[in-house]
Design a protein around this nucleic acid. Structure first.
Lengths: 209, 209, 209, 209
DNA sequence: GGATAAGCGAGACGGTACGTCTCGTCTTTTG
DNA sequence: CAAAAGACGAGACGTACCGTCTCGCTTATCC
C-alpha cells in the first residue's frame, strides 16, 4: 500500500530502517528526474540507493506503491499561498507557482503517476485525501476574496479552483505545452471574470446572451 | 516518424496485409478497453488478433509505435460537434459528450496513457498532431459563435476550449470525481461568461477590478 | 557435530526450552510428511511451531542442523523387531513392516532426502550414525537365527540385512513400484536361501558351479 | 516436462537451439560433478553455458525438469553387458560396472535425482520407461543363464536383477558406503545361490526348513 | 502464368524487470 | 542486559515482457 510508511512515528528516526527509507526515497526522486516517472525501475533504484531490491519489495511490495509513497511524501510540501490583496493577484501568483511546479520533473511526475494509477479502494482514499488536502490549503485565498466582496459568498472554492488548475494540468500533463507568463495571465483573467460578481449568469451587464 | 503505415496507398486494401493490420488495430483497442493503455502488451495483442508477435514487430517495430499508430488512427474519429444555435448549448453538448467519453474505458485509458508517458522526440510529434487534430475539429463551434457575435473575433479557440476541457480532464484523470450534468452545466456557464463580450478585461461593466 | 541439542542433559525436561524443542521437532516432522524433507523451510517450521524463526536460528544455527537433529532423534524409534521363531518368519515380519514404513510419507520422505543430500563432513557422520543405529537394532534377529543354527555364526548381519532391505528401498525410492505381500514373500524366500547353511559356496550340494 | 527434448529429430542438428542445448547439458553435467546434484542452480548453469537463464526457463521450465532431462539423456548410454559364460561371472562383471558407475558423480547424481523427484503423472511414465529400458537391457544375461541351465526358466529376470542392484543402490545412495571388489563378490555369490536350481525352496538339498 | 519479392507463421534467444521465497545476519526494541 | 521482533543482505526461482533473428511457407506483385 502507498501509505505503509508515513504513520510510524514511534520508530527512531536515525535507525537502519530510516536510513534505508531515506536512501530509497532519494534514489527514486533522482531516477524520476533523470528518466521520467514511467521509466523508473526497481533495479535502478536499488543500485542508486545501495539497497537490495528484495528489501525494496519487502517494504513497498511493488514498484507502483513505491512511486506513490515517494511522490505523495514529496507532495507534502504544499505551495506557499500568495496574499496580494486582490483575487486576481492571488490567483496569478498561485498559478505561476503551480505551473512552475508542474513543469518540474517531480511535480509533473506526481501528476502523471496520479493520472496513471488505477484505483483500488485504498488508492481511492489516498487520492481523495491528497486532493482534499490540496484544495483545503487554497481555501483561504477564496475566503479573502469573499471578504473583499470580489466574489459571491456562495462561490464553491473547489469548483473555482478547478477552473484554474484544470487547464494548467491539461497543458502540463496532456498536451505538454509550455505555460508561460502570458498564458497564466490570460487564464487568470478569464477565471476571475468567470467568478466575479456571480449574479444571474444569463443577463449579467444586461447581457447579450 | 512513428507511423510506418499511413503511407502505403498502393497496397490493395483487402489483402492479407490489410487484414492483419485491421485485426491488430482492433485487438489493440480491445486490449486498451480491457486493461488500460499502459498494460497492453504485444503477446496479448498477438493472441487477440491471431497474428504472430514477430509479425507485429516486423511491421511496427515496437510496442510504442504500434500504440501510437492505433492512437493516431483512432484520433481521426472525433466527437460529433453539436450545433444548437448558441455557444452555451454547443459547449454544453460537447462537454457532455466529452465527459461521457472520458468515463469510457477507452477514453479514460487513452487520457491516462497520454498523461503518463514520457515523451521521446517522436512521441512529442505524435502528441502534438493528436491534440492539433482534436482542437482543429472543434474550431467550427467557436467560429459559429463569432459569427453570431457571442464572442469577439479575436478569441483564441484553442485557449477557449482549454478552459472547458481542462477541468473535465482534471476530474476524470486526476481527482477522479464524477462529472454529472450539474457540473457540466456550471462549468459551461462559467466558461461562457469568461469568454463572452471579451472587452477590456480590467474594467468590464465598469468593473470593480 | 551437527547436533547442538542432544548433549544438554542438565536441562530440565519440562522447561520452556524443552517445550520449544518439542514443538519445533513436531513441526519439522509434520512438514516432512506434508512436503517432503527437501522442501522443509524454516519459515514454515516457525509458523507451525509458533516459534520465531530467529529463535530457531539461535538454537540450531541452520536449517541443515535442525533437520539432522530431528532426523537423528527420530531414528531412535526403530521398528519393532518380530520374533517368530524362524529366520524366515522374522525377516518376513520385518520386511513387511519396513515396506509399510517406506510407503509412509515420513518414511519415504526420509529415505528420499537421505538419498538426495550431498554429504558434508558433518552430514557424513550423521548418516553413518543413523544407519549404524538402524542396523544395530536388527542384529538380534540374526543372532537368534545363529543360535537356532539357521545361518552360520560368521554371517555378517549387516550384509545380510542389506540383501533384504536393498531391494525394498530400491522399489520404494527408485523404481517406485509397490511392494505387496507376494513380493515380500519372494524376496524373503530368496534371502533366506542365500543365507542358509552358508557352506563353501562353490560346491554346495555337490553343486554344478 | 523432462522429455521436452528427446523427440525433435526434424530440427537441424547444428542450429542455434542444438548448440544451446548442448552447452546447457554440458554445463549441468559439469556442475553436478563439481557440487552435487542437489546444489546445482540455474544461475550457475547459465553462467557456465553462456546462455541466459531465461532461455533455460523457457525451455525446461524448472530446475527439476532440466536436471532430469540431462540425467536421463546421459543415462541413455547403457552399460556394456558382460558375457563370461557363467551367470556368476556375468553378474560379477555387471555389478562391478554398475558399482563403478554409481560411484561416479553423474551416475550417483542420476540415482539421487530419481530418488528425490516427486512423481507427477508424466514423471511416473518417464520413470517407468527408464527402468523398463534398463531392466530390458540386462535380460539377455539371464536368458543365457537359463539356456545354460543355471537357473530355472521361470525365473523372473527383473526380480532377480533387483536382488543384485538393490543392495548396490542402497550402498551408493543411502548408506554411502564404498562398494569394493569384496562386497561385489559376496553379493554376487549370495544372489547366485538364491537363484540357482530354484526348486522347491523349502527343502532344497534335503533342507532343514 | 510463372518468377520473384514481400510478408507471415513458427519458434528460439538475448536481455531485462518484476515479484516471491528462502537462509542467515544484524539491529532495534522490549521486558 | 538478554530475548523477542523485525528488517536487511544475498541470492535462487520462476514469470512475463520487449525486441531480434532465423527458417520455411504462403501470398501478392511483376515481367
Amino acid at each position: 500500500m502507498a501509505t505503509t510508511e508515513e504513520d510510524t512515528p514511534q520508530r527512531r528516526p536515525g535507525g537502519r530502517s530510516a536510513r534505508v527509507r531515506e536512501a530509497v526515497h532519494q534514489a527514486v526522486l533522482d531516477a524520476i528526474v533523470e528518466h521520467g516517472v514511467d521509466r523508473v525501475g526497481i533495479p535502478d533504484i536499488s543500485r542508486r540507493a545501495g539497497v537490495r531490491d528484495s528489501s525494496i519489495y519487502r517494504r513497498w511490495g511493488s514498484r507502483e506503491n513505491l512511486l506513490l509513497d515517494v511522490l505523495l511524501d514529496y507532495s507534502g510540501q504544499v505551495l506557499p499561498l500568495p496574499d496580494t490583496g486582490t483575487l486576481r493577484g492571488d490567483l496569478a501568483g498561485f498559478a505561476t507557482e503551480l505551473a512552475a511546479y508542474l513543469e518540474t520533473p517531480l511535480g509533473g511526475g506526481l501528476s502523471r503517476a496520479l493520472a496513471y494509477v488505477t484505483d483500488t479502494e485504498e488508492m481511492a482514499e489516498v487520492r481523495a485525501a491528497f486532493w482534499d488536502s490540496r484544495f483545503h490549503a487554497v481555501r483561504p485565498l477564496f475566503e479573502r476574496a469573499v471578504e473583499r466582496g470580489e466574489i459571491l459568498p456562495d462561490t464553491d472554492p473547489r469548483f473555482a479552483l478547478e477552473l484554474l488548475i484544470g487547464p494548467l494540468h491539461f497543458r502540463t500533463t496532456l498536451s505538454r505545452q509550455p505555460v508561460d507568463a502570458d498564458v497564466v495571465e490570460r487564464l487568470v483573467a478569464h477565471v476571475v471574470r468567470a467568478l466575479r460578481a456571480e449574479g444571474p449568469i444569463a443577463d449579467e451587464c444586461g447581457g447579450t446572451g
